[in-house]
Write a protein that binds this DNA or RNA. Sequence first.
DNA 1: TATTGTTATACTCTATAACTATA
DNA 2: TATAGTTATAGAGTATAACAATA
Lengths: 166, 166
Amino acid sequence: MPEPANKELRKFEKSLPIALLRAREATTRLFKPFIESHDLTMPQGRVLRALAEADALDAKTLAERCVILPPSLTRIFRGLTQRGLIAQVPCNDARRHMVRLTAKGHAMFEEVVQESEPTYLRLAAAFGPERLDTLLDLLNELRNTVQTMGEDCEEEAPLRKVAGRC
Amino acid sequence: MPEPANKELRKFEKSLPIALLRAREATTRLFKPFIESHDLTMPQGRVLRALAEADALDAKTLAERCVILPPSLTRIFRGLTQRGLIAQVPCNDARRHMVRLTAKGHAMFEEVVQESEPTYLRLAAAFGPERLDTLLDLLNELRNTVQTMGEDCEEEAPLRKVAGRC
DNA sequence: TATTGTTATACTCTATAACTATA
DNA sequence: TATAGTTATAGAGTATAACAATA
């Protein structure tokens, strides 16, 4: 395991928010070019992915899944609709803005996936496919844990010293 | 392990950039109040932490460690200096802007740590201290892997299908 | 009355390029 | 000539509140 040169940096790396930020920064740097080459922003790319893996979704669900605030999502809807990548779907509840990918949107997303797949496989090979899978599970479970904490925050959990630090 | 309700969401969660983003969003939501209650932004908080765990650092090192671009860092220096939280340190190389925490800066950072520590311990207890440590290691190693990939990108690695996806 | 989404607004971060000063 | 940092500037994200339409 590659230990950082100095203890001070090692301590810094034990900060969870910072470790998440830095890992995300590196990963984004790797994959962003594949999104931007299609004149998409990263949030737009997340919306396309979410829709590609669903049928149709409403704004609230997309906002939650893609971590985009409603005002930003409104702008993103406008942009993607103008480019013919998404289209509104009629909904029983007229308050809901429900959208789906158009054929053009599906095609563009598939292009992004195919172009970026080699890089993803290279990363997986270098990092270790099993470790990557472990990391994905831990990330999703961390999120679930935080969300659960928000709900029952009266409960007293037994505390102990841990290596990490906010 | 809590499986998501539908297969479509499960697939969405296998996207590494999105999993990183969502985990970071949840973690940030948990700890941000402790930073903001001291009228600090998250980037400012990262700078304080980096300086608290070092002696003095120059702008370039801080920019890299805290994932802040130089122009933002210039503004952050200005703000933190005006508030008396950091101070410039003379340096042999007159091009370098080197700073350290003042006593006031140290005191404020310690306040943040002490106030947020219970929440961090609660999270560690809920998530599992060992798993949290594993997650931190994986995040830092992922970043190293990506950085190494950037260097020797001619090398052909053996590819295989993996569970995750960009 | 509560919920969904849009609009308006202010602020910050992101990103790039051009510039200055120093090595 | 190369490096460190600042300035300038445009664009996008972040966040809140106020509003409209619907349930």
